[in-house]
Computed example of a mutant assay.
Amino acid sequence: MSGLFISFEGIDGSGKSTQARLLADALKTRGYDVVLTREPGGSPGAEEIRALVLQGDPDRWSAETEILLFTAARRDHLERTIRPALADGKIVICDRFADSTRMYQGLSRGDLRALVDQLHSLMIGQEPDLTVLIDMDPGVGLSRALSRQGAEERFESFGQDLQEKMRSGFLALAQEFPDRFVVIDGARPLEQVAADVQTVVEARLT
């Protein structure tokens, strides 16, 4: 039995992490075996790489180096967490996956999308069954993200221009992969967004 692989994507502050958690909680209460994970991270080695790429000066790494680091983290995550869970028939809910690398490194910091896709094909070779894109106004999202005042604010430090590019890029990805993506308006009350997410996922489970 194979499981179901769901990813959540969106700009910083879009609420995707909250929605991923709410979906996991809702499915668990219904008796589903769920693994809630995140990227970068989701395995011990990948979590170590997470600290390298999400903390520090904005110019700490070049875009090319970031692509290699994110791909290394994703490979470890895939081997140690995602694939074993799917093989056991579990539902894997992942806060970000390869689409974030396609956007943040492949689009925003140079014309490197082809490189991201080449490495993905060579080292990862897997896409989610369903990607939920939580769409959010870039100004609102950035304000939310900065208000968290956490240690992992390296990408927020690039400012609103980056978030605007990311929003446009994510919406373009949704058009590029319409069978996989579902776009949900995140500028509504939390409960309404969560209800829409659960409706979409329910359709995939029946």
Rank of each mutant, 00 (worst) to 15 (best):
R96V: 03
L115Y: 05
V116S: 02
I124N: 00
L130R: 09
I93Q: 00
V92P: 04
I124G: 02
L133F: 15
S121E: 13
R109Q: 15
L119T: 08
H120A: 11
G141P: 14
R96G: 03
I91A: 06
R113E: 07
H120N: 12
D95T: 14
S100W: 07
L112T: 06
D117G: 13
Y104K: 09
R102H: 01
D117N: 14
F97P: 01
M103G: 09
G110N: 05
I134Q: 04
I134W: 08
I134G: 06
R102S: 09
Q105N: 11
P128V: 00
G125R: 11
L115E: 02
D111P: 08
P128K: 06
R102L: 03
D117H: 10
I91N: 14
T131Y: 15
R96E: 07
P138E: 06
D99C: 06
Q105Y: 08
I134N: 05
L133S: 02
L130I: 02
G139D: 07
L107S: 07
S143F: 00
Q126L: 15
G139N: 12
R102F: 03
L119S: 01
Q126P: 00
I91P: 13
R96Y: 10
G139V: 05
V92D: 04
R102N: 00
L122I: 12
D129E: 03
G141N: 10
L133C: 09
I124P: 03
L122R: 06
R102W: 03
L115R: 11
S100C: 05
E127R: 13
S143K: 15
T131I: 04
M103N: 02
Q126F: 11
L115D: 00
T131Q: 12
G141A: 07
G141Q: 08
I91S: 00
H120R: 13
L130Y: 11
D99A: 01
L133E: 09
S108Y: 01
Y104F: 12
R144A: 02
R102P: 01
G139I: 02
V140T: 10
L133K: 09
L107K: 05
P128H: 06
L107R: 09
Q126Y: 00
D117P: 07
M123L: 15
D135I: 14
D117T: 11
M136P: 00
R144Q: 12
G110A: 11
L142Q: 11
G141R: 04
Q126A: 13
Q105I: 08
M123S: 13
L115T: 11
L119C: 13
A98F: 04
M136K: 08
D129M: 04
